[in-house]
Design a protein around this nucleic acid. Structure first.
Lengths: 199, 199
DNA sequence: CTCCTTTCTTATCATAGGATAAGAAAGTAT
DNA sequence: ATACTTTCTTATCCTATGATAAGAAAGGAG
């Protein structure tokens, strides 16, 4: 049995943050895990591809986004280190993806083969528990985002983003944050200027 | 052992749509289920309450909504028969709810005690599987809603709502659909008029 | 049937944020 | 160092949608 890499230890820690995992369980899980490197701007998933793996980011940052009929990009998720990302709909249904996932920086992923996941759940239900817990917290966060989109102005959305994700603001281009918030880059720039004037 | 009610059979069918459940498993689960009736406009949950149960709607319709600092209501979910509803954040953290849930019609719920759910999962992991699957599909649907809020105009959002939830349009007041879509009732009325003119 | 509440519509006016255009600043590669 | 790309800003103008106001229509309760 090979030693675990630093990346795998990050994955183990991510699992342990939600559930208790034994060495035996983790060793079993590792069978279905493989690393993937992405260069900055390289795509992990492109619209139309079928998503076959769940990706866990161990280094760098990716984002998932859709492209609307006018060619506008809309960012659905930023995933820096310690985050999971995939096109869940494509993964679950094994149909062509409507999302794109690309790297905002040079990035290291660990990929878990979706075709093996049922086997993992059957052997060690703790992994099913893990993904239930993960989905639950993601659901709560997404609902909060829907609520924000219904109730907040551009300024409020940006200021709350600053508060919630201060680290991302430092490493992600502003026009991508704009596309996450649902405003144009020019409007976000205006929001920031008015923030500055008001301070 | 008492006979199952029609409501309980609806619950059983809802579980069976995602997982295989034996009579024994369902009988065990039933221990933690109790019915609740709500009159139209009656609240099941009010902001500040701690959410202690998951609710499954067997008759009627409820909605969950938040109230912003200006007193505006924002509808997060409509839950007609066969849907699950709760304030998941309050449920998971046992902290005061930020959401309200009220009945749009006379409604029958089945409540599952959250404090018992870990016991249920431990005894019969199939229930954990069920809630994982439920959370997954809810997550996918919410992400689609976020995507719509980022990319669609009021008209598109309304027309897609019509397409996705034709039954709800018949039974839910339009101003509540407006509050779900993130537009004012007056704007929705305008959208409908322009739709009519264009037909 | 009548009153009262809720829901929906229409019209006018106001505004937050989009569209467009241009350039500045920062980052990257040769 | 220079050129090229990406990112960010500022300014002007424009439009989709919000705010306000008023009334019509529909639905319930007595």
């Amino acid at each position: 049995m090979s030693l675990t890499s630093a990346a795998e230890e990050l994955l183990r820690a991510n699992l342990l943050a939600r559930v208790s995992i034994t060495d035996e369980e983790f060793t079993f899980f590792r069978q279905y895990v493989r690393p993937l490197s992405l260069a900055k701007r390289q795509h992990y998933l492109m619209e139309g591809d079928i998503c076959t793996h769940m990706a866990f980011v161990t280094q760098g940052c990716v984002r998932s986004y859709s492209v609307d009929p006018q060619g506008q990009e809309h960012t659905l998720q930023f995933a820096p280190e310690d985050w999971w990302v995939s096109d869940l709909y494509s993964l679950l249904t094994q149909t062509p993806s409507t999302l794109n996932i690309d790297a905002l920086e040079d990035t290291q992923l660990l990929l878990i083969k979706y075709a093996a996941i049922e086997e993992v759940y059957a052997r060690y239900p703790v992994f099913e528990r893990f993904f239930r817990l993960l989905m639950q917290s993601r659901y709560v966060a997404l609902q909060e985002r829907v609520n924000a989109s219904l109730s907040e102005s551009a300024t409020e959305k940006y200021n709350n983003f600053l508060r919630k994700y201060p680290a991302l603001v430092q490493r992600v281009p502003q026009h991508l944050i704009a596309s996450y918030l649902g405003v144009t880059p020019e409007s976000l720039s205006r929001v920031r200027r008015l923030n500055r004037l008001a301070d």
